[in-house]
Amino acid sequence: MIVGQRKPIDEIYAMIVANDVKKLLLGGCGTCVTISFAGGEKEVAELTAALELKATSDGWTLEITQLTPLRQCEPEYTREMADAVKAADAVLSLSCGVGVQTLAAEFPGKRVLPGVNTMMLGSHSPDRLFIEYCGACGDCILGETGGICPIVRCSKSMLNGPCGGSVNGKCEVSPDIGCGWQLIFDKLNELKLGATWDEVTTARDWRPSWHGGPRRLESK
């Protein structure tokens, strides 16, 4: 799931003022960012109330329309927003970056502002913690690493074991981060695959990842 985080509200407000927006369409997205409490119908309503509160105290005339389609990343869904987009000076999208760009492409001449920082591809735990699990690198090796991704779960994306910064199973970047390679090592032992630890992973071809320019994928 794409995990988003709403931008600090002062940053959002500054964008609105800088763009001289009087009529704002506040567009939520009903899928990924809803689940990550960043851009669903509930967050749209809360952000609307907060912005209007601020605008009123500043004497800024701001009229906000709320709309949350199922997904902003598909033109068929964003087209449902056409009338509201047309009536607005600008759109503040609480979608991930995909949605923001789909909207911008769909509605030429309309300012589309991002209200959410797209954070990661992650997992949602019951205690509301989102953890990054996937870097969308385009060449998955989870089969060799016991289902733990060294690309995102090792801070250095190392492919052949931990660096010298692994201390007591923690990463030197932060004691809150488990060392990705320690996790892989423990997992491989649990799976009785300790022997694979000795195999050397060859140099990786990064072209399927973002080093080959914007990726395009034609489905069958």
């Binding site: 009903g30 809803t34 689940i35 409490f37 669903g40 119908e41 509930k42 967050e43 309503a45 949350t68």
Partner: peptide, 10 residues
């Protein structure tokens, strides 16, 4: 009412 106030999809 906790679920209603927390539901992100309204």
């Amino acid at each position: 009412g906790l679920c209603a106030t927390e539901c992100p999809a309204g």
